[in-house]
Structures are given as C-alpha cells and as structure tokens.
Simulated assay, not measured.
Amino acid sequence: MSNLPPQIQIAEVVQNKVQHKKLSAGKIIQRALLITLGAMLMGVGLEIFLVPNKVIDGGITGISIMLSYLSGFPLGFFIFLLNLPFFFIGYKQIGKTFAISTIYGIIILSITTTLLHPVPALTQDILLATIFGGILLGVGIGVVIRYGGSLDGTEILAILANKRLPFSVGEIVMFFNFFILSLSGFVFSWDRAMYSILAYFAAYKTIDITIAGLDESKSVWIISDEYQQIGDAIINRLGRGVTYLSGEGAFSGDDKKIIFCVITRLEESKLKEIVSENDPSAFLAIADIAEVRGGRFKKKDIH
C-alpha cells in the first residue's frame, strides 16, 4: 500500500488513465485488419516474387531467407524465431501496443509465407520479380508501420545500439542491411546480391510513399512586409487557411509577421506564384510533412 494521502493516490490513478487510454473496439479491429493486410502483402512479395528467384530483403527477413535456403526449414519458422526476442525488447522499450501489434504482424507474416511456399513464382523474369517483390514488401511494411507495428526487429536493435554507439538509428540499420545483402552474394551469387539491393531500394522508397501517402503535405513559412496581401491571396486563390505569427528579426530587431500554412505538393507551384506576384523579395521556406491532423486543413472552395 502507498503511504501517500488518498487525494494524491486518486490523482495518480486519474493521470495514469489519461496517459494509458485504451483504444476503442473499432480502432482495434481496424488496426488488426490493416496489419493483417500489410503482413500478407509482404508474404506475397517474398514467396511469390523474391524467394523463388533467390533475391532477399534486408534485416531479419534477409537472414531468415538465407537460413531457410541453407537448412531447408520453412521461411516462416525463421522469421518468427529470429524476431521473437525483439518482441520482448519492443515491449520494454517502445510499449505494449507496439509489441502486440508487432508480434501479431510477424505471426501473420510467418503463416502467410508458410502457406504460399508451395505456390510457384509468378514470374521467372528476375528484374520483374525484384521490382514487384520490392514494391509489395514496401507497401506491406509501410501499412504495418503506419498502424503501429513492425515486421522486422532490425529497427528495434538499432534503437538499442544507438544508445551505446556514436551512430544514428538510420546509419546502424543501413550498415546492418549492407552486411546482410553482401552476405547473400556468398550464399546465392553476386548478381543475386545486386538484385537484392535493387529490391531493398524499391521497398525502402515504397515504405516512404505508403507511410506519408501519395498526397504529400507541405508546410510553408513566409516572411514578408506584404503579409496581408499574400495571406488573402492564399485564402482566396488556393482555398487554404493561414496563420499569422509574430516574429522579430535577429539582425535588424524589426517586428515581422510570419505566414504559416499547409498545402499539398500539387499546390506548391501556385503558392510560389502568389508570393512572387505580391513580394518578389519575400522569404519563403517549404518543407515536407509526414502527416496532418486536426485544425482547418480541409480545402475550401475557390470561387
């Protein structure tokens, strides 16, 4: 029993409930269905395209493919076995929801690859198999990541190693995958290792597109003395809302108005035209945004 006063104990319980708010049944079902879809897509990419053509992916999956080839055991067995330790690591380091989503996705992936193993390859063309296999892998992994899980323990390992090594998580993952993809040259052949790098690149780029979406959003920062005209033009001609922020020039000490807004990549050219027309000397900065929620991002009708 705690020695704290009842009022403080109650406050702590309320705070914990706020911090650990449970997902609704609908959200849980949606997450489970999409993680299932993502894991199955990755399984198809592996067993129908890459594995029959001796092309591998990076990470734990790549190691599993090589061990399966050398031992004759099912690919799904090694995917589950090698990723299992990272389930426990993920539980402690990243959280319960992530760990459960990850182990569920890995189980679905293992079952899918086992069931599809007897199915013949869809194509014997090594280039087509590499590209389409990589794309399917990227879509599958991206969907699972987007909905709170993972299908490979490499990233978790990199997060832990990052605390002890003077390298970023991305650099550790890249080094790890370079080692695995190079190793495939000894297990299969060097041309297959090069195709594996191509598949990895296709998967990597597709993951980015899947997570961010095709309709990429961009944040825009504009500093101009003509802020009112530029802001009105963005509202009326683009149908986007704007926010005026107050700033101060570090060199001049002058008060400045900063325009902030969010647009899509298709609207970028039009926005640059608006800024140039109203103030050619305006400061303009545009950056990619992975996700936009809330506020008034929805586009208004343009009349």
Rank of each mutant, 00 (worst) to 15 (best):
I263P: 01
I230G: 10
A233S: 14
G241Q: 11
D279N: 13
E277R: 06
A233I: 03
S252N: 07
R265L: 11
A282Q: 00
S252V: 03
Y227M: 04
I286G: 00
N278I: 08
Q229W: 06
N236K: 15
D279K: 11
L271S: 02
F251Q: 05
F283T: 01
C261H: 08
K270D: 12
V275W: 07
S281V: 09
F260A: 01
L238H: 00
R293W: 07
D301N: 13
I289T: 12
D279S: 08
F251Y: 11
V275F: 06
I230W: 05
F251V: 06
T264I: 12
A233R: 05
D254A: 15
D254H: 12
F260R: 01
K270A: 11
F283Q: 02
V275N: 07
P280D: 10
S281H: 12
F251I: 07
G247A: 15
E267A: 00
A287W: 06
V275C: 08
N278H: 10
C261D: 08
G231R: 04
G241R: 14
K270I: 11
G253K: 10
R296I: 10
F251E: 05
D255P: 13
A290C: 04
N236G: 13
L284P: 15
Q228N: 15
N236W: 10
V262F: 03
F297Y: 03
P280E: 10
K256W: 02
D232C: 03
R240S: 03
V242H: 04
I230D: 06
A233M: 04
I263R: 01
R240M: 07
K272Q: 10
D255R: 15
V242D: 12
I230T: 11
L284N: 14
P280K: 13
V262C: 02
R265P: 05
A250K: 11
R293M: 07
L238N: 01
V292M: 08
S246C: 04
V275R: 12
T264R: 15
E248V: 09
A285H: 14
I234E: 01
G231T: 00
G247K: 05
